[in-house]
Nucleic acid binder design. Structure first.
Lengths: 107, 107
DNA sequence: TAATAATATTGCAATATTACGATGATACAT
DNA sequence: ATGTATCATCGTAATATTGCAATATTATTA
């Protein structure tokens, strides 16, 4: 069918999958890295840095934004996207929780 | 186009995306959790535990196997899939490396 | 207000993913 | 050998993702 059967999984499993999906495209990994290290990071910078068109970057940004990983600070005429460090750390901690509990039970 | 432009990204970015892709479906998260905690984990057990058909489970298992996360021990007439703990730990450590270096540079 | 710059949205084509029924392949038991 | 159980593969349908050109939106500047 192509659509995931979400209703058969636990909230925790769905959460891990959602987090992982954000990181499951190299362009989004690149965008996150670039946003983190730039003070004044805007979309056109990303278009220059990463070799994708402006609409495509914007689309990836939306995925990242929907995951709650962006804080937008408007400064002057340009947007300043900023990584939401709290949410980012939450991602890391939830993933580590999954890895730790899963590995601990391994036969 | 639907296909990712892999050539424009760094090996490290591609690696993170590949790892995340394995975890980006709740069924695979569930399979990993179940495989880790069972001594005698086989496909038909997974079919019973998770609410998906045997071919679908088998397909997800292949993704997990291709990522190097499975060690298969044949015991009697049933397969005993086992989580490759080393590879699993490597996944965790690479993800943490990404999170730590990225967060450290955040504005 | 008009022009410009930056980002978002829309529409569409190509490809990937998810899921399952049908069918194979393999190993064990009778 | 024949049957049965377990798992893999094939074929196919439905849906999702990726990417870009064209266009819209928004904010700033002249």
């Amino acid at each position: 069918m192509g659509a995931s059967k979400t209703e058969i999984h636990t909230p925790s499993q769905l959460q891990i999958a959602e987090i992982a999906k954000v990181l499951s495209h190299p362009a989004r990994v690149a965008i996150l890295e670039h946003i983190a290290k730039q003070q004044d990071c805007i979309c056109s910078d990303l278009v220059d840095e990463i070799g994708l068109s402006q609409p495509t970057i914007s689309q990836h940004l939306q995925v990242i934004r929907n995951a709650g990983l962006l804080t937008g600070n408007f400064e002057g005429k340009r947007l300043c996207y900023c990584l939401d460090a709290d949410r980012f750390n939450e991602f890391q901690s939830l993933l580590n929780q999954f890895f730790n509990t899963t590995a601990a039970q391994c036969c």
